[in-house]
Amino acid sequence: MARSIDPRFRRSSAGASGNVMDRRTAALGLMAACAVAGDVAGETAGAPAAVPQNAAWSSWAARFLGADGRVIDDQAGGISHSEGQGYGLLLAQAHGDKTAFRGIEDWTTANLQVRQDHLMAWRWHVNGAVRAMDWHSATDGDVFRAWALLRAGRATGCSDWVARAVAIARDIDALCIAPDPRAQQLPILRPGAEARMTADRVLFNPSYIMPRALRALGTAAGTPRLIAAADHGERLIADLAGQGAVPDWIDVTEQGFDAPREHDLRSGYDALRLPLYLIWSGQGRHPGVARGLETLQRARAPGHLAVVTDADGAVTAESDQPGYLSIAALARCRPRPVTPTDAAGQSYYPATLQLLAQVAAREQDACETL
C-alpha cells in the first residue's frame, strides 16, 4: 500500500504511578491531538527521502507492520515486543510516515503500556496477551520509542509527543540505572527495570547503549544521569572490546567483568548492533566499531559474516543476510544500498537492522570520524 511521506515529519534529532487505563486513554487522546499538530506545524527537514529509501521502508512495512500498528517478529512465532515497536516507531519517523507512526504508537500504548510507569512490557503474544514475566521492561525498546517520540515532536512542534518522550526518559533514569560496583558515582544502564543487580554485581547488555539517543533524551528530560550512562557505557564497551569480541551479556562486578548468570557468554545477535549504534552516534573511531567489524569478518564462508562467536572466540553461526552485511559495510565506510526486495528474503531482525543502518548512514557520515 502506498504511504504518504511528509518530509517535515522526518527529521533527525540532536517515576510514574497511577491508573493504567486512564493513562492509556489519555495517551491515545494525545496521539489524536498530535495528528493535527503534525499536519500544520514543525520544522523543515530538508529534501524528502530518496525513492529507494522510501521503497525499502514500504517493503518492510508491508511485511512486518500490521494494519493495527503491531510490528511482527516472524522469526519468533509472530509475537511483538518492545524492541520491535521502538524500532518501528523510529523508522516510521525517519521516513516521514505519520500514518504508520501514529498506528505503531497507538498499538503500543493500548497493548504494551500495562505497567504502573511509562515503560513498556517487553513481549506480547499472538493470542493478545502479556503473560507471566512479559510485563518486565526491556530498556532498548523504551530508549528507541522515547527517541522516536522526541524526534517526531521536535519535527512537528507537537509538545505532547515530546512530553511523552520525557516521561519515558525519566522513568528509564529512575528505574533502569545502577551504580558501577567498582565506582559508585558511575551509572550503568540496566537492561530493564526488573533486571538483576546487587551492590557487587550488575547485569549489563552493551548493545542497549545507543549513545546518541540517550544523550538526546537526557538533555530533553533534564536527566544528566542518562548522558553519564551513555558516557560510561561507551567506556565499558571500549574495555570489553580490548579483551576480545564484545559479549551480548556480561556482569560488571567489583573485580571487573564476569560471565553472566542468566545467559551464555558469547558475542551474537545483540552485540552485532554495536558498530551501528556507535557510528550513528558519531563514534566511528570507538574501539567497539573496529572490534565489531573484526568479529564479523571471522566467517569462513565467502560472502558471509560471523554472527555468533562463543566465549573462546570460535565462530558458531554465519550469515549472508543483507541486514548484517549492511552493518559491516557501514563500519567499512561503504554503506550498502537497500533494495525494495531485500525485506522479502529476510526475517524481521536483519531486515530491520538494514533499514536502521540506512538511516544511520543518512544521519551520520560513516567516515566522518574515521
Rank of each mutant, 00 (worst) to 15 (best):
A199C: 03
G88I: 05
V162C: 10
Y87K: 08
N111E: 08
E83V: 10
D160M: 04
G157H: 02
A129S: 14
G192C: 11
D73G: 04
A155K: 05
P187F: 11
V126P: 08
H125K: 12
V126C: 02
A152I: 06
D74M: 04
V114C: 05
R115H: 07
I104V: 15
D106R: 14
D171H: 09
T139M: 05
M120I: 00
G96A: 08
Y87M: 07
Q75D: 13
L90F: 15
G86H: 12
A195Q: 03
T156I: 01
S82K: 11
I72G: 05
A178S: 15
L89P: 06
H136G: 10
P206I: 06
G153F: 01
A138L: 05
H81V: 09
Q116H: 13
Q113W: 11
I168A: 08
H81Q: 10
Q184V: 13
S159Y: 00
R201D: 15
L203H: 13
I79F: 01
A110H: 03
S80C: 09
A76V: 02
D173Q: 12
A183K: 11
H118P: 00
G88N: 10
T108L: 13
W107Q: 07
W161F: 14
Q85R: 06
F144T: 06
V143N: 03
H81C: 05
F204I: 11
I177G: 01
S159F: 00
P181Y: 12
R154H: 08
G96V: 08
H81D: 15
G84F: 00
Q93N: 01
N127S: 13
Q85Y: 05
Q185A: 15
I168S: 05
A121P: 04
V126E: 14
A110Y: 02
A76H: 07
G128F: 05
W124T: 02
L90W: 15
I72E: 11
A199E: 15
R151Q: 14
D171I: 08
H81Y: 12
T99G: 15
H95K: 00
G86F: 07
P206V: 06
A121F: 03
T139S: 15
L189F: 03
D117K: 09
I72V: 15
L119H: 07
F204C: 09
G88S: 06
M120Y: 06
G103S: 15
R196K: 12
